[in-house]
């Protein structure tokens, strides 16, 4: 299990390849990547604030729970903070399990939890100014299915 919190970009291809390389127990590797998308009015940047220390421990707790629930062989979470441009990768998760269903479900669980239980806050900068992104009720509701 590996948790990375950094402001620098990451190499998605290299990370995914390294994660999948040499697996024998796991027949399935799932990866998900989140990308900064444009908004109406044109996004100039996405700024991501976080809570150093708690961020790492919250992500570790979330990934450890996924490892246990789906008997994963391995899990990876990379999440960036700081200022990002449209098209940049914000984060990725990867899961390795014996079978694909577990790998997919565990990846979705990681995504659902790190959206509303890991201490990150997004701010969208447009020509009109900067605004904090409001948490969505559906993101909170998504946790109830687990």
């Amino acid at each position: 299990m590996r948790i990375v919190v950094q402001d620098a970009p990451f190499d998605f291809g290299a990370e995914a390849a390294a994660f999948a390389d040499g697996r024998a127990v796991s027949g399935a590797v799932v990866t998900f990547t989140g990308i900064v998308r444009d908004v109406d009015g044109g996004l100039q940047a996405m700024e991501i604030e976080h809570y150093p220390g708690m961020t790492e421990s919250a992500l570790t707790d979330i990934a450890a729970e996924a490892m246990k629930r789906w008997s994963l062989e391995d899990a990876l979470v990379i999440h960036r903070h700081g200022r990002l441009e449209v098209g940049e990768m914000i984060m990725m998760v990867a899961t390795a399990a014996r079978h694909r269903k577990d790998a997919f479900e565990a990846a979705e669980y990681l995504m659902d939890y790190l959206k509303s239980r890991a201490p990150f806050w997004k701010r969208e900068v447009t020509a009109d100014g900067a605004d904090w992104v409001a948490a969505r009720d559906e993101d909170e509701d998504a946790l109830t299915r687990w």
């Binding site: 984060m91 790190l114 959206k115 509303s116 201490p119 990150f120 806050w121 904090w132």
Partner: peptide, 10 residues
Amino acid sequence: VAFFPPMTGG
């Protein structure tokens, strides 16, 4: 003790 709005990661 830390206070903050609902989180928006991912």
